[in-house]
Design a protein around this nucleic acid. Structure first.
Lengths: 209, 209
DNA sequence: GTATGTGAAGTAATTCACAGCT
DNA sequence: AGCTGTGAATTACTTCACATAC
């Protein structure tokens, strides 16, 4: 495990490569050059090589990368060999949709707990997941070894929900509330904000020549 | 309208500032410094000033920014004064959810058409929007002056759906398929890929010290 | 000949730091 | 005195280009 810092961009592209490589392996294509891989992912050959180069030397001069080997290497680098437990805070419209979302399982993330401030909901199940009281969060997060917390509450309560998750021991937050959380350095926060994506499109339309 | 290129990062932060400023105006706070605005948005004072500085001089030395003025300026810059028409291609689980999603309307985007390849669905309505045949896309996109296309089809059909949208005249694509689209320079593509966000979290967990 | 891996060059984004305005 | 606007310095990211390996 090297010590130099890897950029978010690189990580996110590694997943793109992995997806493509997986498809190639399925198609029985054994070898691929950085140029071809770049073509297929709409990236440049240099970027492909630089990204991969940060983790070791996977290629063979003159012929390219072995798809099978690269797939295994990327899976290891990206931690696709382990499963992580997830808790969702907030079980409104969005929270419920997330509890039903199959993508978590597909990415080796297992949603094992849900929390809601509304006492009427506690004890009920959504998509097979029991809704617990916020008060029980510390105990449950520890017991179930949960490392990812999903914030699916309104903006006003988002900071509070995130702080409770972190206090209980999670180290990653996936934030769906359209507000910026302040969190200690060591906590990884990922904002998912569809509104902002939409807004960016409006800007582009308003300002294109 | 200046001619220098504005980065995506800046645009996306302007929306963050606007959100905060709107809250401040509601709270009757008349003036704010870049340092305070940075504090509230978890950004630095210098970044706030640099971002705003690209569009003009909105501040007053010694006192800061007038929240009311800044709000109006940001709204104008970001095109929040116009409404844009949207078409959704694909009316499966995701497409249907998007047709029901209130966020479009909130951001002055109006979903006025939906398309699906499945002939059994054509003529039906989802959340009040009629599902049309892909064949009618060119006509409908033009008639309804649609400028944003949302791709909510499986990966295999995503490139094709996007090309049809562009051929029909849209200039922005919001892509929900986990695949990279190749599109002409002039088309703005925005990828929304929850899977990739989730995967990035796994990486962080797998690799934290 | 073909394609990698990687320093060096070139761009872009961020942070610093301060002159100048109120 | 307080805070903006902005060049200059720094840091991060990307692209170039080529020596090296097969």
């Amino acid at each position: 495990m090297s010590t130099k810092k890897i950029s978010e961009g690189t990580i996110s592209r590694l997943f793109i490569y992995l997806r493509e490589i997986t498809a190639l392996v399925r198609m029985n294509i054994r070898t691929i050059s950085s140029a071809e891989l770049g073509e297929r992912t709409n990236l440049t050959d240099a970027k492909v090589r630089k990204d991969l180069g940060q983790f070791g030397q996977f290629g063979v001069s003159g012929s390219g990368y072995d798809t099978g080997e690269l797939k295994v290497a990327l899976e290891r680098i990206l931690g696709k060999d382990k499963t992580w437990n997830v808790a969702v805070v907030g079980t409104g419209q969005l929270g419920s949709a997330l509890l039903a979302y199959p993508g978590f399982k597909q990415h080796k993330l297992s949603v094992v707990a849900a929390f809601d401030a509304d006492t009427k909901k506690i004890g009920k199940k959504i998509s097979g997941v029991m809704i617990d009281s916020i008060e029980d969060m510390p105990k449950i997060i520890k017991e179930k070894k949960i490392s990812i917390g999903v914030v699916a509450v309104p903006s006003e309560s988002a900071q509070d929900a995130a702080e409770k998750l972190v206090a209980a021991g999670v180290s990653c937050i996936l934030n769906f509330a359209p507000t910026s959380l302040s969190m200690p350095e060591k906590v990884k926060v990922k904002d998912v904000d569809l509104s902002r994506e939409l807004e960016t499109l409006s800007y582009f339309l308003a300002n294109k020549r």
